[in-house]
Design a protein around this nucleic acid. Structure first.
Lengths: 344, 344
DNA sequence: CGCAGTCTTTACAACGATGTAAAAGACGCA
DNA sequence: TGCGTCTTTTACATCGTTGTAAAGACTGCG
């Protein structure tokens, strides 16, 4: 910057002023400086700027697994929204090892992140507890807590709607595929919310819930969904519909059902969550809970930016509307599969 | 850091030494310092460190479209590999607007990126020309040039193998779906390579190539593939196989074929590229060109790290082996579709 | 006990930018 | 022209680290 200043015959501070618009700079001076910057192909050093004024222009985006379709969609949306606001995005992955949670907290501070968008799966507590030492955080996803800003869809209501839809199309024994919270209190995380909504709807429909119809999967990927479904089929439990907790899980399940010769939707209905691009184009297009990913990302960034401006704001919660997108995979009534069928 | 130093009764430089291991520090001193760091919950400021020694520990990853399945897989792999090397990843997206290319070059410098992994689609020239002013770059993908390090698969050979496979399973009129390079010289980018390999195989098999069987798609997404396929079907041109240039395109095409009542593989064979998770789990599991994404990412990071260590190295090229993964979608021989069928 | 040689620790300056406060310049009006 | 006022530009210090070089502490040996 010194060089630019010399070339333009001004002080470094004036160059800085031109750059940041902090102070008035007279037209001719400004032109000289801009000319000099162009000639020297000058770009400011953000490390130095960050050091001086504590802002780096970088935000973090932490997701459990960057490889999933949902992550890709969200990453895309966040990066776009961030660019629109002059910010740059650093990505982190949290699910691989539990130790990452703590890493994350540390890294967030060392790497001079101005703020962070976090999709916690098991992360809730450890983060919230360090909140004072962390940059501003916006949680995305259905974490029930009131100490940070958050953006979410009403997963419980959505799961309920989905299940009511399955029931109204003739399903009676619906598998919840994606997580059973063995004995734990429901309600805090995504899994809990969706499971709650699932149970709400069963109760409401006069159907009984059963632990045998709530199944965990190894991870929220297509492969994970397939494995979960395979295990469930091996158990022989009777069922006629599946509520998968993400589209990826649903697609894995769909594949496994096909493999087993069980037809969707003739034998079994299936419904997913998130409306990733793939869901619409699946072999059997997938009924799913959809919401506007761009809007989701934009809301997260708005909350984050405003909090970066003023850390004393009260925590806010922004609910994004969702809707049930009905496609071929739930055109019931289903004939059913599992023990009953084989016993017939 | 000063506070830590005071608390431990040493100079700031000693704290720094403990942190970086630059100089020997005696055991008792080191323990006192570490104790103090713990008590004060100290983390070093990377902006300052970056300012001082020009290294930020951040690398950039620039992909055309972060929303695709392939991007997700690569992002995942790169982030994992980067963490293993103590680096953090900043993501950029280049395809949205052409202007992004230039932005990217600028941002790479302002945001103090130590290095960059770049998957260029149209980006080749503008980047290479600024090479001296940029941080180290590793190109991923099949860009033919010899001024930067690169990691790639032999797309031309792979496309050739795929087409030979299609031919050996009975295909005669194979659609290349993903890009036609209208009049331009082939060979530089991914599209060119794959198209070349496609033509190589046709020639080798004694089949004629035809512009009517080389079709561009709006973008390399599932929706893009679907649109491309729909247009092609509307043209009525006879065909019995599809070589899609990515799995996403293939999945879109597959969907559109199903919609049109054309069966895969009974009527038309289809083969993709990249082996994303989804390909294996598609309605009709997709034959595709697969390669090890982890290895791909690791190779890119190895090249990048070594060049960050020594910018004078000769440009290197690292080829990752690929293999044709044969699944249901190419179990020929196909009956064919298009004009011939409808004219019958 | 003293000294060379080695190992630890320190003081200082610098990386590049910007906030603060003061200096210099421009302008209007008497 | 001269004075006060407002605008533009400048000097200086500082953000948190670390390289350099020099000072200080320790070791072993004669």
């Amino acid at each position: 910057m010194r060089h630019v200043a010399e070339r333009a015959g001004v002080s470094p501070k004036t160059v800085s002023n031109v750059l940041t618009g902090t102070a008035q700079v007279r037209e001719p001076t400004r032109l000289r400086v801009e000319q000099a910057m162009r000639e020297l192909d000058f770009v400011p050093n953000f490390s130095a700027r960050g050091l001086r004024n504590g802002r780096t222009g970088v935000i973090g985006l932490a997701l459990p697994d960057l490889g999933t379709a949902f992550s890709a969609s969200i990453t895309h949306a966040v990066v776009e929204a961030a660019h629109a606001r002059g910010l740059v995005v650093q990505v982190e992955e949290t699910a691989a090892e539990p130790a990452r949670e703590h890493d994350l907290v540390t890294r967030a501070r060392t790497h001079q992140i101005d703020g962070m968008i976090l999709n916690p799966v098991r992360l809730e507590d450890s983060v919230v507890e360090h909140l004072d030492h962390l940059p501003p955080i916006v949680l995305i996803g259905e974490v029930e807590q009131h100490r940070t800003d958050r953006v979410f869809i009403d997963s419980r209501a959505a799961a309920r709607e989905a299940v009511l839809h399955l029931v109204s199309n003739g399903a009676q024994r619906i598998l919840a595929l994606g997580g059973a919270e063995a004995g734990a209190v429901l309600g805090k995380a995504t899994v809990g919310q969706r499971l709650q909504g699932y149970r709400d709807a069963l109760t409401e429909s006069g159907l009984s819930s059963s632990a045998a119809l709530e199944l965990e999967v190894p991870d929220w990927t297509i492969a994970g969904g397939a494995i979960g479904m395979r295990e469930f089929l091996a158990s022989g439990v009777e069922f006629d519909a599946v509520l998968a907790f993400t589209d990826s899980i649903a697609l894995g399940a769909l594949h496994e059902l096909n493999n087993a010769g069980i037809r969707v939707p003739e034998d079994v209905l299936i419904c997913g969550f998130d409306d990733v691009e793939h869901a619409r184009y699946a072999g059997t297009p997938l009924t799913t809970i959809g919401f506007d990913h761009e809007r989701y990302a934009a809301a997260a960034l708005d909350l984050l930016s405003s909090r970066m401006g003023d850390r004393t704001l009260e925590p806010r919660a922004h609910k994004i509307p969702h809707q049930l997108l009905i496609r071929s995979s739930t055109l019931g009534p289903p004939a059913g599969a599992g023990r009953r069928k084989s016993q017939k």
